[in-house]
Design a protein around this nucleic acid. Sequence first.
RNA 1: GGCGAGGUAGCAAAGUGGUAAUGCACUGGUCUGCAAAACCGGUAUGCGCGGGUUCAAUUCCCGCCCUCGCCUCCA
Length: 494
Amino acid sequence: MPAHLTLHDTLTRTDREVTPLDGQTLRFYCCGPTVYGPAHIGNFRTFVAQDVMRRVVEASGTPTLHVRNITDVDDKTIRDSQKAGQSLIDFTQSWTAKFHTDCDALNLLRPHIEPSAVAHIPQQIAMIEKLAAGGHAYAAADGSVYFRVSSFKDYGKLSHLEDRELRLGASEAASATDSDEYTKDSLTDFALWKARKPEDGENFWPSPWGEGRPGWHLECSAMILEYLGEDFDLHSGGVDLIFPHHENEIAQSCCSTHGKFAHHWMHVAHLMVDGGKMSKSIGNLYTLEDLAKRGYSAAEVRYVLISGHYSAPLNFTMHSLDSARQALQKMAKADKALERGSPNPQHSASDSNPPSSSDGDSTLRSPAADSEVRAPGPFSEAWDTLLKDLNVPGALGSIFGTLNKLKPAALNPEEAAATRNGLHFMLQTLGIVLPPVLEEVAADVPPDIQALAQQRWDAKQAKDWATADTLRKQLEAAGWLIKDSKEGFSVVAK
RNA sequence: GGCGAGGUAGCAAAGUGGUAAUGCACUGGUCUGCAAAACCGGUAUGCGCGGGUUCAAUUCCCGCCCUCGCCUCCA
């Protein structure tokens, strides 16, 4: 199989091969969540795309070092922890735990390192000192420290805003009247260290410039230096982070080291809901919990999130979740047919795993559990498609196309086994966990329904079609479907 | 105003200089007493609009319209 993934690079605006600088391990950094509430599916779109990227790299034989931060100190975490009457640490830790629960449900591989901002204050202060020594930072009268954007000639290269003119829009007009902002030499300068304010409460740290807290952009630069060094393979985040966050990271890092910083930039487009942007006021900011209440599993959500190319906006709807459910069923059925057709079918995973969307991934059937899943087999077209800028929707289409062509039920044992291995390779790479096939047995059929169904079966055996049909309609009206087979019948919720 | 992404069947979404994957939905058939499942088919002469280049464009070029994002802390 082809060796390397090709990914679009935001900086050079070209598709480039993703290969490790050190020839061994792909080291990459993802901007993580700010933990002041549950993450929504838009946030998760980015994390899922990054997860697929990592899985593809690993599936192609390259180990990874995945670092993703937890932002646990900023205006929102401080504000909301105070509202909740909790310490910042307690507050952010509980939301971090929730984040992890959601990540597990979505079958996201845990980053190898997940550093938090408050745990790296000294590293951040050290970086500011370096910047100040190099003439890139200056302290304002109130004790805040700013980065002098004019001191970095490459500022704006990533976002291609180098020759932009600052327009004084509404938000800027507002911030310009903020006393904080008056202390900056230039409107474009950004905070490295924010002086302590009364509303910060207990949340401040000592520094050479007085008490305060680090600016948001700084944590990523400092933690990248700590765990990945001066330059590393790839940096990723949502498109909205290109400016100013990533631009500022580049400025901080390049000016405080001699490194080249990230060699590749991957940005994930936003998720839209019902054709528009998500917003709290519209009430379309869904969390996994919201969707679980509507009966949708995290696996179904994941499928929807990967069903559009990461670089293009994706429209999320309830119908897309229904569609995902059916698509997963289709895959699961194909998998089952392949399993039946394979020689020495192993213990049927689908039999041993209860249908559950709320359990952690450990109890779900994961192709990752199969030991010899290493090659795409008949799905090489899908695999090749995936390697071209992570074309997941193209790969999914190819997988179905291949399944349609192969007719899983008609393969000989060897072909079935090989096909199943290939399918699992692809599923594992996409992080798709197949659901149990919805069939026959419905555990919680009420006794009266069961009795009616039995009557219908008896009538059918007596070839009393009229009675049988009447009873079937009666059951359907009550919300139950009858499915007959040669041996008997089953009742399924409509 | 600047920068960026996108406009492909009812919905979603790939893709290509040579006439449109795939999933959902819908629909015809086989099978079934009838259904369900399964299997075999069908469903965009068309890819935002108008020009241009070309033997040939949805795919390249130009112009225009529309949607979305970013333009200081939002994945």
